[in-house]
Amino acid sequence: MPVHAAPPGLERGLDLPSLYTAVRLRERGDAFAHACAIAAEAGAGTFVHVGRFDLLEFAVVLEPEEPLGRARRAFFAGMAAIADAVAAHCPPEKGLAFAWPDAIRFDGALVGGGRLGWPEGCPEDAVPDWLVFGGILVAARVRIGDPGFHVDSTSLEEEGFGTPEEVIGSFARHLMVHVDAWGERGFDPVAEAYLARLEREKAGDTRGIDVNGDLLIRHHGERGPVRRVPLLPALQVPGWLDPATGGVRL
């Protein structure tokens, strides 16, 4: 799933690798929606981000090479890249984990999430013209009163992270690493990177990701069929996303 250079003429803002072209939106913009809207014309490698102080909001256009049902696994490459970026700029004594499939928790508190978009009406067995992976991280919690009463969420500011530009740029570079690994060695390295941070239901569980992105779980010591947790319904309604604000549930 290459990340190709996008057409010239788009706005450049962040310090991104040369394979990306940045598009910066004003504070009220929606990076994910905008990336989906321009994906067909702007092309792969287009990197949309929003200039606001309370959220790190970004989305990147990808060019899939597989049918949609399999190509959705690009979501896991995006999630692994966000985790790598966050881990590179966070205090080392605190852990980062995924709550299946799309919520990102830092030291047990919700700090953001990822999502995936694709062309409306694209059949599962057809190669889509584009995919869009989008992510949102809480940069600063505002208008919530005393943060001590909202222990289920946190922000990069409260946790002592680096600058927003550093985190977003790191995500872009880590995404290239995971996409390249997928192309060279197959999907297994991407799955391993994602599953290593996925919260476990029980110690000793054996987990895997099927070709369509579903989570496969076998509990330690149990017999019988592997339990399947579907990916698609969760991507259609991200549990971490607050529909009222367009941001992370606080």
Rank of each mutant, 00 (worst) to 15 (best):
A193Y: 02
R228G: 05
H174W: 02
T163I: 14
F161S: 09
R228I: 13
F187A: 02
G162N: 05
L241N: 03
E159W: 09
G160Q: 04
D188K: 11
G186P: 06
S170V: 09
H174S: 13
R228P: 08
I168S: 13
F187L: 00
N212C: 08
A203F: 12
D210S: 15
E201H: 09
E201R: 14
R173D: 07
F187T: 04
G204K: 09
A172S: 06
G213Q: 03
I168G: 15
T206L: 14
E222S: 12
P225I: 15
D188Y: 10
V167K: 07
R185Y: 13
G169V: 08
H219Q: 13
L231C: 06
K202H: 11
L235T: 00
L235I: 01
G183Q: 11
A193H: 03
E166F: 14
V211K: 07
D180V: 04
P233Y: 02
A172P: 01
R173Q: 11
W240Y: 07
G160M: 10
K202P: 06
L198Q: 00
L195A: 05
H220F: 11
A196Y: 00
R197V: 05
D180C: 06
G213K: 02
V229W: 02
A203R: 15
D188L: 11
V179L: 10
V190M: 00
A234N: 10
V177N: 14
H219E: 13
V226G: 00
R227L: 12
H178W: 03
G169I: 08
E192C: 01
V229H: 06
R228E: 10
E199D: 09
G183I: 00
L235Y: 08
D180Y: 14
A196S: 04
A181K: 07
R173K: 09
G160R: 03
V179S: 02
R200V: 12
V211I: 11
L232Q: 13
G208I: 01
F171N: 07
I168N: 13
G204P: 02
G183V: 00
G186W: 10
G204H: 08
V226L: 01
V179P: 01
F161R: 01
P189A: 01
G160F: 14
G213E: 02
I168Q: 14
P233S: 04
P238Q: 06
R227D: 13
A193Q: 01
L215N: 03
P238R: 06
G183W: 07
L232E: 15
D205N: 08
G224N: 11
R185H: 15
V190Y: 00
P189E: 07
A172Q: 03
R228D: 11
E184D: 15
P230K: 08
